[in-house]
């Protein structure tokens, strides 16, 4: 097996008295796509935010390439430049044009040359079919288009790890395929992905591993075949019956 990129070990996260993650352990290897499934409220988004150090965890450890990210000497801002995240609600910046949304990370976080970054951003926009909307503001775009811009905004960071939180839930069905292709391309280029999703066909299609989260516990993990055909737990079975 190839090198471990991200490792979560026994991660516990509470919001006040509400334990949302109860000791989750998960590994992602290089080139691997892991899909995270589970009922609404099971903690998928929280897990992704923890992996991006957007939440402080209560116990356990998180490491990237075998380096603990919870070490005081680690700058979370630097870590996040390697781990990109796409959100359920897009979270595009409404005061910036589509192009400037995509440029913000490369120019103001990576401090890359503006002209070069702009070229690359335009290339990325043309790849998702939205180059002609580059100078418009996000509120002029449909939800699906906004989510594609949000993905482009993450991709121009050239992340080693991409976290996606239900990115297809707002996409027009005709666009899901092209986004999947894009994600597969990225996987081939060495991007590791952790994808929270409610779309089982998508998961079965793109994932190497499926992880099932049940009320903050990672109940089981396996290849799509193992998990979808022969779930070991009653709860997994029930969940899969409900969503299919």
């Amino acid at each position: 097996m190839s090198e471990v990129v991200l490792e979560l070990d026994n991660v516990v996260k509470r919001f006040d008295d509400n334990e949302v993650l109860s000791g989750v352990s998960l590994r992602l290897h290089r080139h691997e796509v892991v899909c995270l499934i589970g009922a609404s409220g099971s903690g998928k988004s929280t897990l992704l935010r923890c992996a991006n150090l957007l939440e402080t965890i209560d116990s356990g450890s998180i490491s990237l390439f075998n380096q603990s990210l919870l070490d005081d000497r680690v700058d979370p801002d630097l870590v996040r430049r390697h781990i990109a995240m796409v959100f359920q609600t897009f979270n595009l910046f409404p005061h910036l044009s589509v192009l400037d949304n995509v440029l913000l990370g490369p120019v103001h976080a990576l401090k890359r040359n503006k002209a070069e970054a702009r070229e690359e951003a335009r290339e990325m926009l043309s790849r998702i079919g939205l180059l002609e909307r580059a100078n418009e503001f996000p509120d002029r775009l449909s939800g699906g288009q906004q989510q594609r811009v949000a993905i482009a905004r993450s991709l121009v960071m050239r992340p080693t790890l991409l976290l996606l939180d239900e990115v297809t839930s707002a996409l027009d069905p005709t666009l899901v395929g092209e986004v999947l292709d894009l994600l597969r391309d990225l996987a081939h280029q060495g991007t590791t992905m952790l994808i929270a999703t409610h779309e089982m066909n998508f998961a079965r299609d793109v994932a190497h591993q499926i992880a099932y989260l049940d009320r903050g516990v990672l109940l089981e993990q396996g290849t799509p075949d193992e998990l979808f055909t022969n779930p070991r737990h009653e709860s997994t079975k029930n969940f899969l019956n409900r969503v299919r």
């Binding site: 991006n52 801002d77 996040r80 959100f87 913000l104 990370g105 990576l110």
Partner: peptide, 8 residues
């Protein structure tokens, strides 16, 4: 969250 996740 979006801005911080970009490493800003």
């Amino acid at each position: 969250l979006a801005a911080r996740s970009l490493g800003l």
